[in-house]
């Protein structure tokens, strides 16, 4: 089952198509937004918390900056950080899971117990602990999110590696004298493609939530940069007067997470379909 086949099957479900459309919309908004923005994100366009006008279609924020321009500029950070965190987290998790599931024995025990310790921290707490001590740097947040996702991915990978390792074709390859490494890469990885695509989709959704949440707490992207999570925090005191400063970034974050989650769900459904056909 290649990744492409999985995607083709997943897109047979309308929810996957909707999810891809929503995600695509937000990705375009984040990437092209800065080119379309009528103002720079730090330019003052009106009185603080003034409502929508011809010059500022969504009004001004609590400092008098253009809300629309800040929304258009504020997507890039959460986009690249969450994608990087999800990809890195899945990569680390797969490496550790394969190591544990294929080496077994002592290596397995050591890796899995170490991951038990990481998983004991709620993800947000783990990230907060280190970010609070080392400072809110983008690469650090990405790395910490990846570390937080790795144990879950490793458990899934290990389970599949153990199960595939028991199958006859892998044992046959081993008897035929193929090297262990080539067996892992050649035989186990293809079986992992679809589950890992699901993991990637879910971790991406959670990365967006975690990274936007950190910014909302004031521990992510730092002012005066434009960032959706940060904007919610900056503008929430003016909610009664000028709701757009909160509504617009909240809507962007919500649509982004709903989109990626729908894609993950669509891919997961193809997996359930395969399992049923196998009699699993």
């Amino acid at each position: 089952m290649t990744g492409l086949m999985t995607l083709r099957r997943a897109f047979a479900y309308p929810q996957t198509v909707i999810g891809a459309a929503l995600t695509g919309l937000i990705v375009l908004l984040a990437l092209l937004g800065p080119l379309l923005a009528p103002h720079t994100p730090t330019e003052f366009v009106g009185a603080p918390l003034s409502g929508p006008s011809g010059d500022a279609l969504l009004g001004a924020d609590q400092l008098g900056r253009d809300v629309l321009s800040r929304v258009l500029h504020g997507g890039r950070s959460v986009l690249w950080m969450s994608v990087a965190a999800a990809v890195l987290g899945v990569a680390i998790g797969v490496a550790l899971g394969l190591l544990a599931g294929y080496a077994r024995g002592r290596a397995d025990a050591v890796v899995m117990r170490a991951l038990d310790v990481v998983i004991a921290f709620p993800q947000l707490v783990l990230v907060l602990l280190f970010v609070s001590l080392l400072g809110a740097r983008a690469w650090l947040i990405v790395l910490l999110c990846a570390v937080a996702w790795a144990p879950g991915v490793a458990r899934v990978t290990r389970g599949i590696a153990l199960e595939v390792g028991e199958r006859e074709f892998v044992q046959a390859a081993e008897v035929l004298g193929y090297r262990r490494r080539s067996i892992v890469l050649g035989e186990i990885l293809p079986n992992l493609t679809t589950p890992l695509m699901v993991e990637l989709g879910l971790r991406l959704t959670w990365s967006i939530a975690l990274i936007a949440g950190l910014s909302f707490l004031g521990l992510g992207i730092q002012p005066p940069a434009a960032d959706w999570g940060l904007m919610v925090n900056e503008n929430r005191n003016g909610l009664t007067v000028q709701p757009w400063g909160v509504v617009a970034p909240v809507a962007c974050i919500a649509v982004f997470t709903i989109g990626t989650n729908l894609i993950a769900e669509g891919i997961a459904r193809t997996m359930a379909g395969i399992d049923r056909k196998d009699g699993g």
Binding site: L239, V246, T260
Partner: peptide, 19 residues
């Protein structure tokens, strides 16, 4: 399940407490 908790919270604030 997709939407972050603080987004749900802020939405409830807007609907029931402010806007």
């Amino acid at each position: 399940t997709a939407v972050p908790d603080f987004v749900i919270g802020m939405t409830l604030v807007m609907v029931f407490a402010t806007s």
